[in-house]
Write a protein that binds this DNA or RNA. Structure first.
Lengths: 116, 116
DNA sequence: AATTCATATGATTTCTTTTTCATATTACCA
DNA sequence: TGGTAATATGAAAAAGAAATCATATGAATT
């Protein structure tokens, strides 16, 4: 019987993506930018993350080319570069639903999104 | 315009899953167990990971109920508990392909899997 | 041109994850 | 029953990621 492993280069890449998504702030940023573009101040207010910290996170997403910047006067707007990542995020969120459903023993439906 | 955020509980869960997949050994374990069950020694040999280290990784996957154990004599066999995770993994691997294709400038097709 | 607002960056500190080491547990075998 | 093979576990060490702090940059405003 022949056993397959994930090819090393592919594996590295997969781990990188998963790590990027393995952070609250970064997931929320992607989730927000899916809806529209935001500048850094707006993201800061929505996410309650400190300026520098947010900036560092944005850099990670930029470095991986998931988002891109565009300067408008004093502010910098961010948008999704690679909508393909949304499919991956959706898969994770779908799994999340699956898990939350499965573990919700009180029969209450799980509230999925939150308006702000 | 109304902006949506991911609900906190869901977000936490999503981050957990993503983190679990954000590790070479753990992804490979899931990829292997998708194919068949393996005991710890077999996994060790295939993955070249030290016994204790592997055992700790298996525990994480167990704790999150992605895999389960079954003792057979002296050895312990592991299997996937929640095949739903495979959809998530596939999405990540698909994104990986997308990225590797995009960055492959030499026109060479990217070798995806590896037999062992 | 000096000041202020928005954002970025590098270095340091703090927190988290992973590995390693030593030891425990459980089953099999002589 | 004592020994050994397979796996698990807790604690400590090492490696990695995130937050914080101080400062830099770049555009607007006075």
């Amino acid at each position: 019987m022949t056993t397959r492993l994930i090819h090393p280069a592919k594996l590295d890449e997969a781990v990188k993506i998963a790590k990027l998504l393995g952070n609250k702030t970064r997931i929320q940023i992607l989730y927000l930018l899916e809806q529209q573009q935001f500048n850094v101040t707006e993201l800061q207010e929505i996410l309650h993350v400190e300026q520098s910290s947010l900036s560092h996170q944005l850099k990670e997403l930029r470095d991986y080319q998931l988002i891109s910047q565009q300067r408008v006067g004093k502010s910098v707007y961010y948008q999704l570069t690679d909508p393909h990542i949304l499919a991956t995020m959706d898969a994770i969120l779908a799994h999340t639903d699956h898990v939350l459903q499965g573990r919700a023993h009180d029969g209450q439906p799980v509230d999925v999104d939150q308006e702000i």
